[in-house]
């Protein structure tokens, strides 16, 4: 039965399985549209770099979000964590905590990545061991992290001197491609390989599809979820560091509503909020759509209020379309 598939059917099937095709097409259309609207600016290397940095920010957060949403959860904390981790990295490097001496870039980054990961694991602990809904526990962190960021800085940004080598991460480019975008590609590939090829990835999808059946199949469901929440925290910290570098400061006001953009990116990219389905590629493309639209609308001088209206509409249309497509199948 399985072997008798004719070649042309095989091609069609693999095309059909390339679920991100729609998202990719949507992205390309969008890209062409904005290009046609402002042909002089849009394709300029400087502007492309801006778009790529946008994509890097949301894409990074979307990676963690996809992992968690696949398991049937949600992470509302990442926006605030971005602010908190950005503030911490700046404090560690420029001021020192509570009179302690400042530390170098590398140790500061490592410490902040650990803090982000610990926040993620903390969510995982509540979700798995205490069965607290992910919505609630990450909403708690959303507030806590926001508050902590403001407390640490007393509300003022901690500004890097303009010659700091730290700024290369968020502002520098390699062969014309922003470093932050390269970092995104590396992480996205890594997590993609984990999801598609590793047994951990197989288990992540299974847990999202049916946690009880997975448990009874010998899957350590808690460990799988801990991995996903931990990774999301790690990604939030990475984003926080890159943003601090891009802005040249650790500021508590950054990252507001980023969790929602990240979730939107994941959902536009085909991740099912019911769990069990979603891909990194889709989420990155979703983030690319979000990033491109934000940039394009700025170029077109669309008011920021209208921008929100447009983005919200796109989100709804994408989800409705995806739901209908799924139902037809």
């Amino acid at each position: 039965m399985a072997e008798e598939i004719k070649p042309d059917r095989k091609v069609r099937r693999s095309l059909a399985q390339f679920r991100e095709l729609n998202v990719l097409l949507a992205f390309l259309l969008l890209f062409i549209f904005f290009y046609s609207q402002s042909p002089k600016v849009f394709l300029k290397p400087a502007n492309l770099a801006v778009i790529m940095r946008f994509i890097a920010t949301f894409g990074m957060l979307s990676i963690g979000e996809v992992l968690i949403i696949i398991t049937g959860g949600i992470d509302l904390s990442v926006g605030s964590l971005t602010a908190l981790t950005g503030v911490i990295v700046a404090t560690l490097m420029l001021k020192g905590f509570g009179g302690m001496p400042t530390i170098g870039m590398l140790p500061a980054i490592i410490i902040v990545l650990c803090i982000g990961t610990l926040f993620g694991l903390w969510h995982g602990f509540f979700v798995t061991k205490l069965r607290i809904p992910p919505f609630i526990i990450t909403l708690g962190t959303w507030l806590i992290a926001k508050g902590l960021a403001a407390l640490i800085t007393h509300g003022y940004p901690i500004v890097y001197p303009s010659e700091s080598s730290f700024l290369v991460l968020g502002q520098g480019s390699l062969f014309g491609i922003p470093i932050s975008f390269i970092i995104l590609v590396i992480f996205a590939s890594l997590v993609s390989i984990i999801l598609n090829r590793s047994r951990l990835g197989y288990r992540i999808y299974a847990v999202g599809g049916n946690a009880e059946a997975s448990r009874l199949s010998g899957v350590n469901v808690d460990r799988v979820k801990l991995f996903c929440y931990g990774t999301s925290g790690f990604m939030a910290a990475t984003t926080g560091i890159l943003l601090a570098s891009r802005l040249g400061q650790g500021t508590p006001t950054v990252g507001s509503a980023y969790e929602l953009w990240a979730i939107a990116g994941a959902v536009i990219g085909g991740t099912s909020l019911l769990g069990g389905e979603g891909t990194i590629l889709g989420a990155i493309l979703g983030a690319a759509i979000v990033g491109t639209m934000q940039n394009g609308m700025v170029l077109l001088n669309v008011s920021s209020y209208l921008q929100d209206v447009v983005l919200g509409t796109v989100l709804v249309v994408a989800v409705v379309y995806d739901t209908l497509r799924r139902r037809r199948k």
Partner: peptide, 9 residues
């Protein structure tokens, strides 16, 4: 269906 299978897979 509830314990044995991940139906969507």
């Amino acid at each position: 269906q509830t314990q044995g299978l991940v139906l969507i897979q």
